[in-house]
């Protein structure tokens, strides 16, 4: 089983974000592996431990994203590649998916691509399905459990987390699978792992290395642009304290308020 894990480097979930000249900044908050992608690398490692083969991490991003790939190596991925190129700046989900597809094709002989269900910066959740379409592979998003994989028959059976419940489906490999919380408990890197990762050289791939024309990626290849980004205007709320001598009195007062609000 050869598995590719796609990871993205994002600002920490607790980062205080600011917008300066239409660019998002996060001060000195750390950059982390997108939390959803931790479930993807953990699942890749579990499958590798079960079936053998190789787990390869790839990331598209600026040179700093090499740190996210080092985390992947530290937890046990075998190889990592950074896709970085000035021409990729301004890529939308579609251009990102195209780039990742070309990287997966360059790696070759891949059975499964794993991603987190979405990145916590752009929050689109589109990349997995787009990547699958580019590759012409099975797409299974929002997977909360991989029941079984038969590497010989090239089949996979999963449980997907849908609005109406969990959908159980079987499908053919190769597949692109996006995973969610609950599928596993991501491991922490070991001390040895961190030491090994710090010494590893992570090859850089440019778009030329992947055979992608510059016009198909970055701001020029994007189908969508985001000319304006700004802080969520917050409703000025001042809490109105509901007090009373007994829980019953508080409940009655609160019920009055909520009925007057017409939300019940």
């Amino acid at each position: 089983m050869n598995i590719v894990v796609c990871v993205k480097q994002v600002p920490d979930t607790a980062a205080k974000l600011q917008v300066v000249d239409s660019h998002v900044t996060w001060g000195d908050s750390p950059l982390i592996v997108n939390p959803w992608d931790e479930y993807a690398y953990e699942e890749a490692l579990l499958l590798k431990e079960k079936f053998g083969g190789k787990a390869t991490a790839i990331s598209m991003g600026p040179e700093s994203a090499v740190e996210a790939l080092k985390t992947c190596l530290a937890v046990g991925c075998d190889e990592a590649y950074l896709i970085t190129d000035p021409a990729l700046k301004g890529s939308d989900a579609s251009a990102t998916a195209l780039t990742l597809a070309k990287a997966v094709q360059k790696l070759g002989d891949v059975d499964l691509v794993l991603l987190g269900k979405q990145a916590i910066d752009g929050d689109t959740g589109l990349t997995a399905a787009m990547l699958g379409r580019h590759l012409g592979w099975t797409v299974l998003t929002q997977v909360i459990k991989i029941h079984e994989i038969d590497p010989a028959a090239k089949t996979i059976k999963v449980e997907r987390f849908m609005e109406e419940g969990r959908q159980v489906c079987s499908a053919k490999l190769p597949a692109v699978v996006s995973v969610i919380k609950g599928i596993n408990e991501p491991r922490y890197p070991s001390f040895m792992g961190i030491r090994k990762a710090s010494k590893a050289t992570i090859p850089n791939w440019s778009i030329a290395d992947l055979g992608i024309e510059a016009s198909r990626v970055g701001a020029s290849g994007a189908f969508v642009a985001w000319p304006e980004i700004y802080p969520m205007p917050l409703k000025e709320t001042k809490v109105e304290w509901i007090e009373g001598g007994s829980p019953q009195e508080i409940a009655a007062k609160l019920a009055d308020k909520l009925i007057a609000e017409k939300v019940i």
């Binding site: 916590i120 910066d121 929050d123 189908f223 980004i229 969520m232």
Partner: peptide
């Protein structure tokens, strides 16, 4: 909303 609703983004189609 982007960044978990901390920011808002105005987006437009560029092509297609």
């Amino acid at each position: 909303p982007v960044y978990a609703g901390k920011l808002l983004c105005n987006e437009v189609a560029k092509k297609g």
